[in-house]
Nucleic acid binder design. Structure first.
Lengths: 339, 339
DNA sequence: CTACGTTCTGTGAACGGTCACAGAACTCCC
DNA sequence: GGGAGTTCTGTGACCGTTCACAGAACGTAG
């Protein structure tokens, strides 16, 4: 629009002039309203084609006070955004639902505080009617902005407790319990866990689920913790666990990346998987199918998370009570070769 | 904005009223213009804070005839979008540049003809001043729309020949030649290729580069082609190649996913990599570091592609001649364990 | 004291649509 | 032929900004 010399876009007035009718009638035809003569309708359609008219949605939205668009805001550092296939699936799920509701999904990546402010400004500009927010952080200025603007929003993942916003997530604890039970079911007797990210609810909940599954048989000495969900964390933690408890015959790794590291540590130590040691992961990320053997893991319904979050935003848009409650979605245990 | 009962947003008029000045003066303060008394400025700033004013960018853009936003349009089927780490990197590169120019990047995913139309409508609405388009297809209705609207746009990847739009891409042919030469340099004598996607320029160019590198020693019987860049394609193609030419000692796979399949087929056939057979891939995708051994492959400067495309759009926005020419970026051969 | 430049402010029009309202044209029936 | 109802059309106001212009207030020089 700012490019100099670009010819002016045709407006509804040009169409009206060309068709020999008024703006009002053109607007009626464009919006499919009744009470327009066949003659006028035909003339307007011809005129639209002739002058190459395309509606200016910005003007339309200004008049209608809505944007017909929903933001999809990803707040992740670069590495994770690239690494994590779940985000892509969430995005596509949200896109599917919003597309069905004829809403344009507009996705915005935040990777700095500056981005965060610009996005807040963007949201405030009436460009979007609502937002799906993925992995907001603690003390995220964006959440504050959303609250202030009272834009309908739904988070994917559990929000910091002080923020009252609807959210959808998975039951990390239940899923961790289920996959640990699978490990138990394959006859393992000495089951360890490589826990990670205990400072986040996902990490803590996965450990809690592991404990739930083992009950009395839970043994603290079989748990090794690491700060992040990383391949190398899994590798070193597995080495540590093997050194400490050589008779371990089952391992629940807090994520697939961690499990991949554990697998390589086991291979290096001459243990066979799954014959000597059963290994399970969490996430069903791209790691899971690229290890040897492939990982038995917990599948997150990532696409469904995106769909549900989008539906929640649409419901809020329809004026339905934005119950600020969380929804937990079910997960599946996916059986592959590693346990 | 459509949610019923939501309190009306404060406008510039409310601020003016509160501060006891006119709209014009408020606008001047908001835009940092000179010729405003310190007194008025202070009163306005206080009023802004008091009424909680946030500018309505839609109205602002309508008046200014610009959006201060650039679209990032990804036209890929779901699977590829999730699979291909290059797209994420391109996105982040573009985001970096646009963010620096204080433009909001708005990314839009197209996965159906319906999406395509909606995105075209979105672009026409004055929401964005320009667009970066990733992997547009042949006969893509979107490219037509962009042409019609004469929106500044730059493609990532080579466009269909009949469309005159600036683009940036990589030299698939040169890179394929370089990595094949690496294979030759490791002393391989019977080098095969698993080609793929020969109907796209990337696939055809990679085969051409392979041929360039081998010259006289090119042997058609050592080439197996498959329609898509897929793991299973690599696996079956490698089996076919081994059956046909058991003495093959080097393989150039047209993508990392294909190479991963080939690797597994070689393992199943009892060949050691790289001792018996050297394998190289293309893309430097996440597959490359997760195979055993890790892949020697061609690294695409994906982030740079995104940056360049964004810069090109910004240049067009500044009114610089949108030379409809392509730019080829350099690629690197990354040496890992597989050859 | 007047004329003039500088600094500051308010106003009306514009951006491109939608909508409510008024009224015209047409049909139908008495 | 006139009144009532239905169908169709045009107009002015409005959405929330920016901008050009007119003009006010003030200081300074002649």
């Amino acid at each position: 629009m700012s490019s100099p010399g670009r010819p002016r876009r045709a407006t509804i007035r040009d169409v009206a002039l060309e068709a020999g009718v008024s703006r009002g009638t053109v607007s009626r035809v464009l919006n499919g309203e009744p009470y327009v003569s066949a003659q006028a309708r035909a003339a307007i359609e011809a005129a639209v084609a002739k002058v190459g008219y395309v509606p200016n949605t910005a003007a339309r939205n200004l008049a209608l006070q809505r944007a017909q668009a929903v933001g999809f805001i990803v707040h992740e550092p670069h590495e994770l955004f690239l690494e994590d296939p779940n985000i892509g699936a969430i995005l596509l799920g949200a896109n599917r639902v919003l597309s069905g509701a004829d809403q344009q999904m507009v996705s915005l990546v935040i990777d700095s505080e500056r981005d965060s402010r610009r996005v807040a400004r963007y949201l405030s500009g009436g460009f979007v009617d609502g937002a799906v927010v993925v992995s907001a952080r603690q003390n995220d200025s964006l959440l504050g902005a959303i609250g202030r603007l009272s834009i309908p929003a739904t988070l994917v993942g559990r929000p910091p407790s002080e923020v009252r916003v609807p959210w959808v997530g998975i039951d990390n604890r239940g899923a961790a319990c289920a996959i640990t039970e699978h490990l138990v079911g394959t006859g393992r007797r000495r089951i360890g866990m490589i826990a990670a990210a205990l400072d986040r609810d996902s990490g803590a909940d996965r450990l809690a689920g592991f404990r739930d599954a083992l009950g009395d048989r839970f043994d603290e000495r079989l748990v090794v913790a690491r700060p992040l969900y990383e391949y190398t964390a899994g590798r070193t933690a597995m080495e540590e666990l093997l050194a400490r408890e050589p008779d371990v015959d089952g391992v629940f790794a807090a994520s697939d990346a961690v499990a991949a590291g554990a697998l390589d540590a086991l291979r290096a130590a001459g243990r066979r998987v799954p014959e000597d040691v059963g290994v399970v992961g969490f996430d069903d990320s791209s790691w899971a199918q690229r290890t040897h053997p492939q990982l038995t893991t917990v599948h997150q319904p990532a696409r469904l998370l995106g769909e549900r979050a989008a539906e929640s935003v649409l419901a809020q848009l329809r004026g339905e009570a934005p119950e600020p409650v969380g929804t937990l979605l079910e997960t599946d245990v996916v059986l592959r070769g590693s346990a």
